[in-house]
Design a protein around this nucleic acid. Structure first.
Lengths: 160, 160
DNA sequence: GCCTTATTAGCATAATCTGCCAAAATCATA
DNA sequence: TATGATTTTGGCAGATTATGCTAATAAGGC
């Protein structure tokens, strides 16, 4: 891979698009100090390289009645590769699981689950999580408040 | 507030925009079964109500050299309101902290921190996290792999 | 210093957005 | 069930924005 060298202008573009994914190309161009044409070319290149994965709308969780964040530590019975894959496949089916990480240390997986209320979480546990083959133990931790939620990655370390 | 009643069409719009924030209004309108004009009107209303918070570009963490996810459990010395606020203010200053939750149970806060490598995480710990006033204990858990990362909230429960 | 290559600016065309008005649908009330 | 008021919709027109093309500029190698 030729690494395609992300320069300062690309970094500015990414930082801006991570904040406002719908900024008009003209405005983006002005913000990064280019004319619209080469600016658009760079954006397209970043999209095609896969560096920009996608554009999304972010919805306010409270306003769609999803105020409850639960972090779930899951341990599997045996760490067989096959089991990991089937667990991950099962997790990917559930839309309320917004994040899932394979972890070092005690637990095998850490999930972030979003639900309308505790009843819905209980439902999720009983109907789905405990029914996944190989799940040995589950520990739930509830968030009282979402203090911060960012999707923009910090790009300072790319400065050349 | 009259609650403005989210109907099935709004739900379709939100679901679509959560997947593709840059879809053309014409295409969105067709997808949800409206003509462009009322579709755009609904989108604007959703934006102005704050239900759609913003639009962002999602960047691939690996491609910008940010492969390391760390979950950090932080306990404060005393749970004084003032301390919580100052801790949260300090956390909001750090761009590598993408998520922060006030938790029930043992730890006070759970953070998700994204860094290029372990050295950068050590730097973050020593230079920033341990220097925040009131921090009593820190426990770091490293993710081996990001199995799933979604920004789209599940909206099935809004079905009327 | 010259030539090659890559990147840029500006313009013209095409696509898209968005406000306005009449028509259709919905709803409450009698 | 009929009626009228209110809300929502569809289609059109003007304005904005995106995007491909070409020439000019800048960067890099020899």
């Amino acid at each position: 891979m030729p690494k395609s060298q992300i320069d300062q202008i690309d970094r500015k573009i990414l930082t801006r698009l991570q904040k406002d994914g719908r900024i008009a190309n003209n405005d983006l161009a002005e913000a990064v100090g280019l004319s619209p044409s080469p600016c658009l070319r760079r954006v397209k290149a970043l999209e095609e390289s896969g560096l920009i994965r996608t554009y999304v709308a972010l919805v306010d969780p409270a306003m769609v009645e999803l105020p409850v964040n639960v972090f779930v530590s899951v341990t599997l019975e045996k760490q067989v590769e096959e089991r990991l894959d089937s667990f991950e496949a099962a997790i990917r089916q559930r839309p309320e699981v917004l994040e899932c990480y394979l972890m070092t240390g005690e637990a095998d997986y850490l999930l972030r689950v979003v639900v309308p209320d505790l009843a819905a979480y209980e439902q999720f546990l009983k109907t789905h999580l405990t029914r996944i083959a190989g799940v040995a133990s589950i520990k739930s931790s509830f968030a009282l408040k979402q203090v911060r939620y960012e999707t923009a990655l910090p790009l300072h370390h790319l400065a050349v």
